[in-house]
C-alpha cells in the first residue's frame, strides 16, 4: 500500500448529551482534519439528537495511563483513608452530615 492510500488520521469523538452534563467518549472515526471529523461525528454519532456539543480530538494527541501501571500510579491514594467521609465516626444525632 503506497503513501497516497494511507489511512486518514483517527479522531476520538466526545458528545455532550445535554447542557449541564460532561462530554462523554462515544467512539472514533477517520477524517482528514478536525473540521471534517466534526461533520462526520455529527452524521455518525448524533443522528437522533444525542448531543448538543461535540469534541473531536486526534487520537495521537491523547496521553493515557495504563491499568497495569495502576499500582504505582494510584497506590499513594489507598493509604489515605482520611480522605473519605466514612473515615469519620460521628454520633448518631449528627451522623447525617
Amino acid at each position: 500500500m503506497n503513501e497516497q492510500q494511507q489511512l486518514l488520521p483517527l479522531f476520538e469523538v466526545f458528545v455532550r448529551s445535554k447542557r449541564g452534563l460532561d462530554h462523554k467518549h462515544v467512539g472514533s472515526l477517520h477524517a482528514e482534519n478536525p473540521e471534517q471529523a466534526l461533520e462526520y461525528a455529527r452524521d455518525c454519532y448524533t443522528r437522533r439528537s444525542e448531543g448538543v456539543s461535540i469534541w473531536v480530538v486526534k487520537s495521537s494527541d491523547i496521553t493515557a495511563s495504563q491499568e497495569e501501571d495502576a499500582r504505582s500510579f494510584y497506590d499513594p491514594m489507598d493509604d489515605k483513608p482520611y480522605r473519605h467521609a466514612m473515615h469519620y465516626q460521628l454520633p448518631e444525632p449528627v451522623n447525617n452530615m
Binding site: Q5, L7, L10, G27, S28, C44, R47
Partner: peptide, 23 residues
Amino acid sequence: VQDEGGHGLYLYSAAETLGASRE
C-alpha cells in the same frame, strides 16, 4: 440505510482498537 453505514463505522472502529487497519 444510513444507520447501517453508521453501524459499519462503529464496528470497524472497534476492530481497529485491536490493531487491524481499515485498509
